[in-house]
Design a protein around this nucleic acid. Structure first.
Lengths: 206, 206
DNA sequence: GTCTATATTGCGATAGAC
DNA sequence: GTCTATCGCAATATAGAC
């Protein structure tokens, strides 16, 4: 049995611990970035929140920016996944758009901490990393545009400017993470429901 | 002729110069905050952009945060003024809501630099300053709600959740400053026109 | 009111023992 | 892999001459 076999079949315990710490650091970065902003957060703040020394951060992430990038990547992938799942369900264009807007706005209420960091701190990313994130955002717009096209072809929707309407429908959800509070007037589900109705009002051919 | 009379009737030239420099500093802060973010901007960056030494900043503003607060105050007052002017015109609720959404979204395209700083960097304000800004934002929502109430009473509008609809209508405009670019697909006027149509679709009683 | 120079603090990242 | 200690630098704000 070679060393490679052992590593692949049963990772050594220190690897498992390492991965767990890496994840804790990421959560700590999310919490501190959300509370104080990226530039307003020091690596000592992150380390304190993760329960390790400041120097130990650099074993898991090479730079502070790499932490932000990982958060932005995870967050955007999560939104795209949520929205794509809603878009790919069987149903009329009306049903699919309804599901997409409901899921998107609901996500920005439930996961507003991630969404805030991910939407507000993109300017702190390096040029290359920002471009990688932009691709995911364009994918989101593309999914919405696809449903709008289907609805126009079926006669269910009437849209004057297709790309602009897709942008506006996503804007509704993006802004939720700015003002949503737990225990406020609305639940996340209620927001999804109301926003889905407004979205259909915008595009409905009546 | 006393010294007081002279000062009141004809401010000395160094006061005029001082005010002009104060304004140049504010513009420099706007430019640098917009480009690099509040925490990403040093007082040296602001001073360089204003054409003065870093130390001279402190003659005009006591802290860097005071600069941000002044920008946030000016920016929010400008939005409230633009929206209130549109809301107070004579006309049906439909016409008034149309004017408000057109003006609001158009403003966030034309003045996107101010709007970005003002909307994205509020977390860097002190608690007291942030509360003062929040009051202006609530005033904005209140204006929109007032028009919605008028439209519901006249039978022109049909709205399920009034405060949430007001929030959503403003969200459309807020997000414009995030993605709008000069020389892009749409002019600011076109955005105002399309967004106004979408807003009426949302609330129209048909 | 503006300047140069600096006090003071905090930052991101690294060195080296264990 | 984690720690303590520290490097080198940049930050905000102030001092004092002009």
């Amino acid at each position: 049995m070679t060393e490679e076999h052992t590593s692949a079949a049963a990772p050594r315990r220190r690897n498992v611990r390492g991965e767990a710490t890496r994840a804790r650091v990421l959560v700590a970065a999310l919490d501190t970035f959300a509370a104080q902003g990226y530039h307003g957060t020091g690596t000592r703040d992150i380390a304190d929140a993760a329960g390790i020394s400041q120097a130990a951060l650099y074993v898991h992430y090479a730079t502070k920016e790499e932490l932000l990038f990982q958060l932005a990547l995870d967050g955007h992938r999560a939104v795209v996944e949520v929205v794509r799942d809603a878009a790919e369900q069987d149903g009329t264009p009306t049903e699919r758009l309804s599901a997409v807007v409901r899921a998107h706005s609901r996500y920005h209420a439930v996961s507003r901490k991630q969404a805030r960091v991910v939407n507000l701190e993109l300017g702190a990313l390096t040029r290359e990393h920002r471009q990688e994130i932009s691709a995911l955002r364009r994918e989101l717009e593309s999914i919405v545009r696809g449903i709008l096209v289907a609805g126009i072809e079926s006669g269910d929707f009437r849209v004057i400017d297709l790309p602009l309407t897709a942008l506006a429908l996503l804007s509704l959800g993006f802004d939720v993470c700015r003002w949503y509070r737990d225990g406020g007037t609305w639940t996340a589900d209620e927001i999804g429901e109301r926003y889905q109705e407004m979205a259909l009002n915008i595009v409905r051919n009546s």
